[in-house]
């Protein structure tokens, strides 16, 4: 009896593993093994022909923390995330509420909002390069109408990062809007009518009913925006290459440079591990905190 049962259990376990195998194989090949290898590589010194790599413990990490460029890049990325995440989420929500209302040419408005998302980031960055061009770019042309002189938006340390931030917000808001729009469509119009009868104005309805019901979507968007604030660096290659003087350099760009321009794989690996750890912690906090306040149907 028990033998038969354990046989049965083992058979089910076998089925389970067989079903998991394709996913496990692919995930291992492209995610788990590279991640493990990166973590492992970050513990070794940089190998050259004369001095092969040797185990260095946490040396790479201590060196990173002492490096002013690393500090600068981390500060940049924090500012970048701190501005792009809330601003693009807020704009996305605003646009979704607007595009969900009964307005003329609703389809056109939605499509227009979504267009930046359909463009490849490289193409969008090239577009913005023309906007930002000192003197002849659209932005300076418009500024000129009001009597302002030309500004090298991408070329000076004070404005370069902010110029990048604007491009990112422009690119991301339309994408996030689609999620909000989809979520808004699932909220029955009855709720608004019931709220109106109960005496709630537009703002009360938005605050007490709409925003809480959109919370799961907001959580999803915040996590995505967080990931993008680290992941999305395509436009840096076109617009500033991280300059001037590292003013617009973000961490992933710095990792890329470290690994493929300076061929310092161990330091790049160490930074990658740090990024993974930080992202993991932040995502966990986001889920914990917002999950309690989100209502899932």
């Amino acid at each position: 009896m028990t033998a038969g049962r354990s046989h049965e259990t083992r058979r089910y376990a076998l089925y389970g593993w067989l079903l998991l195998t394709p996913a496990v194989a692919l995930m291992s090949l492209f995610a788990f093994i590279p991640a493990g290898a990166t973590a492992w590589a970050s513990l070794f010194s940089r190998g050259t022909n004369r001095r092969p790599a040797h185990f260095a413990g946490l040396d790479n990490y201590t060196q990173l923390f002492a490096d002013p460029t690393f500090a600068k890049v981390v500060t940049n990325n924090l500012l970048y995330a701190g501005v792009t995440i809330p601003v693009s989420t807020a704009i996305a929500l605003g646009m979704a509420l607007w595009a969900n209302a009964r307005i003329p040419a609703r389809g056109f408005v939605r499509a227009a909002y979504f267009t930046p998302t359909m463009l490849p980031m490289i193409a969008a960055a090239n577009l913005w390069l023309f906007f930002y061009t000192p003197g002849i770019g659209v932005i300076d042309k418009i500024a000129g109408l009001f009597g302002f002189g030309p500004t090298n938006w991408l070329g000076q340390p004070d404005t370069a990062l902010w110029a990048i931030i604007v491009v990112t917000i422009w690119k991301e808001s339309g994408f996030f809007m689609i999620f909000y729009l989809a979520a808004l469509q699932t909220i029955p119009p009855d709720l608004h009518e019931a709220a109106r009868i109960e005496g709630a104005g537009r703002w009360t309805y938005t605050r007490r009913v709409l925003l809480p019901l959109l919370m799961p979507t907001t959580l999803f968007i915040l996590v995505n925006a967080l990931i993008n604030s680290v992941k999305l660096i395509d436009h840096l290659f076109i617009l500033t290459k991280g300059g001037p003087d590292n003013a617009s350099k973000l961490i992933l760009y710095w990792i890329w440079e470290m690994a493929f321009s300076y061929f310092d794989a161990p330091h790049a690996a160490a930074m990658t591990v740090l990024v993974l750890i930080v992202l993991g912690i932040v995502a966990a906090i986001q889920f914990r905190v917002i999950d309690r306040r989100a209502h899932y149907r």
């Binding site: 009855d190 019931a194 149907r297």
Partner: peptide, 12 residues
């Protein structure tokens, strides 16, 4: 006051 067919209760 009004009672809706769907009840229109606030789910959260």
């Amino acid at each position: 006051s009004m009672v809706f067919q769907s009840y229109a209760l606030f789910p959260h």
